[in-house]
Amino acid sequence: MYLVCVLAILGAMGMALTRSLMGPTVFDRVLAANSFGTLTVLILSVLGILTRGPNFLDLALLYALINFLATLAVLKFFEYGDLGRRVDASVGGGVS
């Protein structure tokens, strides 16, 4: 049963990878990478419960955090052109 779940997640990861390879715009690729990261968190959790090695859950937790930060950093880069510039509050309240 866990195997069915792992296979389903792997199939979904393949579809997300396909979209990130053929995505027309850069936002498609960022979106596909983001959902690939979410699926990685899920497959780490399932494998951690399956192999009775709960250390995998720490990896999943860390991976969720890094995934979130990476998405925001890449988006900020493509929206403003660089990462180091200060963004004034009237323009970038949501992203920064």
Binding site: F27, V30, T38, L57, A64, T71, L72, F78, V95
Partner: peptide, 28 residues
Amino acid sequence: LVTFKLVLVLVLVWFSSPISTYALARAA
């Protein structure tokens, strides 16, 4: 403890996903 970590993962995913989705739609 394992269930607590699962809850933590779930909370993290559920909080970060709308934020990154909103930022992505806004940037696009």
